[in-house]
Amino acid sequence: MTPGSNIPLSAARVTVDVAAPVRLDVSGLLLTGDGKVRSDDDFIFYNQPTGPGVTYRSGGGTAPDAIVVDTAAVPPGIEKIVVTASPDAAGQSFQGIEPTTTIRNADDNSVLGSFTPPQLGAETALVVVEIYLRNGVWKARAVGQGYANGLAGIATDFGVSVEEPAPAPVAPPTRTVEARVAAPVGGSAAGAGAAA
């Protein structure tokens, strides 16, 4: 597949896996006709692995992570499932680690299509493919749209509430207290040092 191309899905259940030379975080977002999630429950990823008709499957570090879509179980009103990927290492971009997405029949593992986005650079997250409903037919489209602000940027674009980490509390300034030793009256400074 090439960017923007699409294929009709010949299987009701498909697996979309995303492989790269490094570990990736793969997720899926269920979108309505306006291109937004209905709630944060429509964001499927390793911490929330199941949703209506969509499941996250971990590769366990030895195989690619995947999103499994059962088109027959996708609820009415959901018109698109967007599959995203980002490098697991914080701040790592896709420069030199272009991912390959493979769409398979989930029941017999046969390949329906594959896609490798061209010319990636500073992107830290990608919308790799979308599974979408058009005139009653489920299709897959190669996307390859990159984001420089990671998975949070993608999630926010599609209406997911992303909690930013709370800023670290600022410690009150500390004062250095200098101990001053006064020389005893009638004594010498050397004697004061000895007394201390």
Rank of each mutant, 00 (worst) to 15 (best):
G35N: 12
R23T: 14
P169A: 12
A194H: 02
T15V: 08
V162P: 03
S27H: 06
P21M: 12
L133C: 10
R134I: 01
P87G: 12
A20D: 09
S110I: 00
Y147V: 08
V111G: 04
A85D: 09
S188Q: 10
D17W: 06
A11L: 08
Y56L: 03
V181R: 13
G77A: 01
E79G: 11
P75N: 00
L112W: 00
S86N: 14
V26K: 12
V129L: 05
L9C: 02
Y147K: 02
V82W: 04
S10P: 01
G59W: 10
F94D: 11
F43S: 07
N105E: 01
I67N: 05
E163V: 12
A72D: 07
E130Y: 04
V185Q: 14
S58Q: 06
G186C: 05
S10E: 04
V162W: 03
G144T: 03
P3N: 00
A142S: 13
S86K: 14
R13M: 10
D107C: 01
P117G: 01
G187W: 09
V185R: 13
N149I: 10
T174H: 11
F45L: 06
T156R: 15
K139I: 05
A12C: 00
E178R: 14
G113V: 00
G61K: 01
I131D: 11
A171Y: 04
T156Q: 15
E164Q: 13
D40I: 11
P99I: 09
N149H: 12
A171N: 08
A152K: 11
G150L: 07
A179R: 15
D42F: 11
A179L: 15
A166K: 14
V143E: 08
V22C: 13
I81L: 09
P64N: 02
G4P: 00
Y132S: 08
Y46C: 02
K36S: 15
T101P: 02
Q92I: 09
R175Q: 15
A168C: 04
G61D: 01
T174V: 15
G186M: 08
A19K: 13
V37M: 13
P76Y: 02
R38F: 12
Q48K: 10
S110R: 05
E79M: 04
W138F: 03
V18F: 05
A194M: 06
A192P: 02
L120I: 06
S110K: 04
S39Y: 07
L30G: 12
S39A: 13
V18H: 06
A19C: 08
G51W: 07
I67A: 06
P52R: 11
E163Q: 13
T100H: 05
L112T: 00
T2N: 06
V162M: 07
I78Q: 04
P52Y: 08
T15P: 02
T71W: 01
A19S: 15
P87S: 09
G51M: 08
P49T: 03
W138R: 05
N109F: 03
P117R: 00
T32M: 11
A194T: 08
P52V: 01
F94C: 12
L151C: 04
A179W: 14
A11T: 07
R13K: 14
P165F: 03
V16N: 06
V129D: 10
G144W: 04
A155C: 07
D42P: 13
T84S: 14
L31P: 08
D34Y: 07
V54N: 05
G186F: 10
Y147A: 10
G61C: 02
V160A: 09
A19H: 10
G4L: 00
R38N: 14
V137K: 03
Q95W: 09
E123F: 08
A106W: 00
T100E: 10
Q119I: 06
